[in-house]
């Protein structure tokens, strides 16, 4: 009596959509990074579900790599946020238009 893999796909699609909406509608950079974490977790759920479904450990190894990339992304992203807050004293995303053409 196992749960079919399509349920996991639906769950991770919902979480991924929530992350996309969060990246698009939030203004706080920290909230945007949290939404990126949501998207990464959605892919992790998919990887592990298919790893269990196909009886292949490669999916779990790739979750390991996704975790590494997430940790690196968080470290660099939060360092950028601290540098931005030091120069502009805000982290509202609409204040930063230096790279806009």
């Amino acid at each position: 009596m196992t749960v079919p893999v399509s349920y996991y796909i639906i769950l991770s699609a919902i979480v991924f959509l929530t992350g996309v909406v969060g990246v698009l509608i939030r203004r706080n950079i920290i909230a945007i990074l949290l939404s990126v974490e949501l998207m990464l977790n959605a892919t992790n759920i998919n990887f592990v579900a298919f790893s269990d479904h196909l009886q292949d450990l490669g999916g779990q190894v790739f979750v390991f790599f996704a975790l590494t990339v997430a940790a690196a992304e968080v470290a660099v992203g939060l360092a950028i946020i601290i540098a931005l807050h030091r120069s502009r004293s805000t982290i509202n995303i609409e204040e930063f238009n230096l790279l806009k053409w």
Binding site: L24, I25, R26, R27, N28, I30, A31, L33, L34, E37, A70, A71, V74, A75, L78, I81, I82, H85, T90, I91, N92, E94
Partner: peptide, 24 residues
């Protein structure tokens, strides 16, 4: 690790006001 880092930066920057949604 990651959540503690997030909370640390949130506490460090002290910004929990003026946070509304985009109008996009």
């Amino acid at each position: 690790a990651i959540l503690v880092l997030y909370l640390f930066v949130v506490m460090l920057l002290n910004v929990n006001r003026d946070d509304r949604y985009h109008s996009q």
